[in-house]
Protein backbone atom coordinates (compact mmCIF):
# COMPACT_ATOMS: atom_id res chain seq x y z
CA UNK A 1 0.00 0.00 0.00
CA UNK A 2 2.92 2.32 0.73
CA UNK A 3 4.25 2.00 -2.80
CA UNK A 4 0.77 2.49 -4.29
CA UNK A 5 0.27 5.71 -2.33
CA UNK A 6 3.69 7.01 -3.28
CA UNK A 7 3.24 6.19 -6.98
CA UNK A 8 -0.27 7.70 -7.00
CA UNK A 9 0.95 10.91 -5.39
CA UNK A 10 3.72 11.31 -8.00
CA UNK A 11 1.41 10.62 -10.96
CA UNK A 12 -1.48 12.76 -9.69
CA UNK A 13 0.99 15.67 -9.29
CA UNK A 14 2.38 15.07 -12.80
CA UNK A 15 -1.16 14.99 -14.28
CA UNK A 16 -2.11 18.28 -12.63
CA UNK A 17 1.15 20.09 -13.50
CA UNK A 18 1.23 18.81 -17.10
CA UNK A 19 -2.37 19.93 -17.66
CA UNK A 20 -1.78 23.41 -16.25
CA UNK A 21 1.54 23.92 -18.09
CA UNK A 22 0.29 22.42 -21.37
CA UNK A 23 -2.72 24.74 -21.47
CA UNK A 24 -0.52 27.69 -20.46
CA UNK A 25 1.98 27.06 -23.31
CA UNK A 26 -0.86 26.57 -25.82
CA UNK A 27 -2.48 29.84 -24.83
CA UNK A 28 0.90 31.62 -25.16
CA UNK A 29 1.24 30.26 -28.70
CA UNK A 30 -2.36 30.93 -29.77
CA UNK A 31 -2.89 34.32 -28.16
CA UNK A 32 -3.95 37.19 -30.44
CA UNK A 33 -4.32 35.01 -33.51
CA UNK A 34 -7.72 35.59 -35.07
CA UNK A 35 -6.82 35.65 -38.78
CA UNK A 36 -6.59 32.37 -40.70
CA UNK A 37 -3.03 33.04 -41.89
CA UNK A 38 -1.79 33.55 -38.34
CA UNK A 39 -3.55 30.30 -37.32
CA UNK A 40 -1.39 28.40 -39.80
CA UNK A 41 1.60 30.27 -38.46
CA UNK A 42 0.59 29.27 -34.93
CA UNK A 43 0.90 25.58 -35.81
CA UNK A 44 4.62 26.10 -36.33
CA UNK A 45 5.03 28.16 -33.16
CA UNK A 46 7.41 26.56 -30.64
CA UNK A 47 4.92 27.35 -27.82
CA UNK A 48 2.15 25.39 -29.57
CA UNK A 49 4.54 22.48 -30.20
CA UNK A 50 5.63 22.54 -26.55
CA UNK A 51 2.00 22.79 -25.36
CA UNK A 52 0.87 19.84 -27.47
CA UNK A 53 3.87 17.74 -26.34
CA UNK A 54 3.14 18.47 -22.67
CA UNK A 55 -0.55 17.58 -23.21
CA UNK A 56 0.43 14.24 -24.82
CA UNK A 57 2.59 13.61 -21.72
CA UNK A 58 -0.45 14.59 -19.58
CA UNK A 59 -2.63 12.02 -21.28
CA UNK A 60 -0.06 9.23 -20.91
CA UNK A 61 0.41 9.98 -17.19
CA UNK A 62 -3.38 10.00 -16.72
CA UNK A 63 -3.68 6.61 -18.50
CA UNK A 64 -0.96 5.17 -16.23
CA UNK A 65 -2.76 6.53 -13.15
CA UNK A 66 -6.06 5.02 -14.33
CA UNK A 67 -4.36 1.61 -14.65
CA UNK A 68 -4.46 1.31 -10.84
CA UNK A 69 -6.59 4.18 -9.41
CA UNK A 70 -10.39 4.61 -9.42
CA UNK A 71 -11.85 6.97 -12.05
CA UNK A 72 -14.06 8.50 -9.31
CA UNK A 73 -10.84 9.29 -7.38
CA UNK A 74 -8.75 10.59 -10.31
CA UNK A 75 -11.32 12.98 -11.81
CA UNK A 76 -12.05 15.13 -8.72
CA UNK A 77 -8.47 15.04 -7.38
CA UNK A 78 -6.89 16.19 -10.65
CA UNK A 79 -9.43 19.05 -10.84
CA UNK A 80 -7.07 20.92 -8.49
CA UNK A 81 -5.51 22.11 -11.77
CA UNK A 82 -8.42 24.58 -12.12
CA UNK A 83 -7.57 26.19 -8.78
CA UNK A 84 -3.85 26.16 -9.62
CA UNK A 85 -4.48 27.86 -13.00
CA UNK A 86 -6.42 30.66 -11.29
CA UNK A 87 -3.68 31.13 -8.68
CA UNK A 88 -0.98 31.11 -11.40
CA UNK A 89 -2.92 33.80 -13.27
CA UNK A 90 -2.83 35.95 -10.14
CA UNK A 91 0.82 35.27 -9.31
CA UNK A 92 2.40 35.52 -12.76
CA UNK A 93 -0.02 37.56 -14.85
CA UNK A 94 -1.43 39.82 -12.11
CA UNK A 95 -5.02 38.75 -12.88
CA UNK A 96 -7.74 39.82 -10.47
CA UNK A 97 -9.51 37.09 -8.49
CA UNK A 98 -13.07 38.05 -7.49
CA UNK A 99 -14.74 36.90 -4.26
CA UNK A 100 -16.79 34.30 -6.22
CA UNK A 101 -13.62 32.90 -7.78
CA UNK A 102 -11.88 32.71 -4.37
CA UNK A 103 -14.92 30.77 -3.13
CA UNK A 104 -14.53 28.45 -6.15
CA UNK A 105 -10.84 27.87 -5.36
CA UNK A 106 -11.69 27.07 -1.73
CA UNK A 107 -14.53 24.66 -2.68
CA UNK A 108 -12.30 22.80 -5.17
CA UNK A 109 -9.50 22.52 -2.57
CA UNK A 110 -11.94 21.19 0.08
CA UNK A 111 -13.42 18.71 -2.43
CA UNK A 112 -9.97 17.45 -3.46
CA UNK A 113 -8.89 17.04 0.19
CA UNK A 114 -12.10 15.14 0.98
CA UNK A 115 -11.75 12.73 -1.98
CA UNK A 116 -8.09 12.19 -1.06
CA UNK A 117 -9.18 10.70 2.28
CA UNK A 118 -10.92 7.83 0.38
CA UNK A 119 -9.06 4.73 -0.81
CA UNK A 120 -7.32 5.02 -4.17
CA UNK A 121 -8.68 1.73 -5.52
CA UNK A 122 -11.98 0.07 -4.61
CA UNK A 123 -12.25 -2.52 -7.41
CA UNK A 124 -10.46 -5.86 -7.61
CA UNK A 125 -7.79 -6.11 -10.33
CA UNK A 126 -9.40 -7.69 -13.44
CA UNK A 127 -6.24 -9.65 -14.15
CA UNK A 128 -2.56 -9.59 -13.27
CA UNK A 129 -0.35 -7.06 -15.05
CA UNK A 130 0.31 -8.18 -18.58
CA UNK A 131 -1.05 -7.95 -22.09
CA UNK A 132 -4.62 -7.68 -23.25
CA UNK A 133 -6.16 -10.90 -24.53
Amino acid sequence: MGRLRWKTRVFATLVVLANVLGNFFLSLGLRHRAAASSWLEALTSPWVFLGVSVLVFWMLCRLALLSWADLSWVVPVTASGYALTALMGKLFLGEHISAARWAGIILITLGVLLVRTTSIRTTRPYRRSGGLP
Partner: peptide
Protein backbone atom coordinates in the same frame (compact mmCIF):
# COMPACT_ATOMS: atom_id res chain seq x y z
CA UNK B 1 -18.91 6.59 -0.41
CA UNK B 2 -20.38 9.86 0.92
CA UNK B 3 -16.95 11.51 1.20
CA UNK B 4 -16.26 10.86 -2.48
CA UNK B 5 -19.74 12.07 -3.51
CA UNK B 6 -19.41 15.21 -1.39
CA UNK B 7 -15.90 15.85 -2.70
CA UNK B 8 -17.01 15.49 -6.34
CA UNK B 9 -19.98 17.80 -5.64
CA UNK B 10 -17.75 20.44 -4.01
CA UNK B 11 -15.34 20.31 -6.97
CA UNK B 12 -18.24 20.69 -9.45
CA UNK B 13 -19.60 23.73 -7.52
CA UNK B 14 -16.07 25.18 -7.34
CA UNK B 15 -15.63 24.86 -11.12
CA UNK B 16 -18.98 26.66 -11.64
CA UNK B 17 -17.91 29.53 -9.35
CA UNK B 18 -14.47 29.81 -11.01
CA UNK B 19 -16.05 30.17 -14.46
CA UNK B 20 -18.67 32.78 -13.55
Amino acid sequence: NWRRWTGAGLVACGVVLLAL
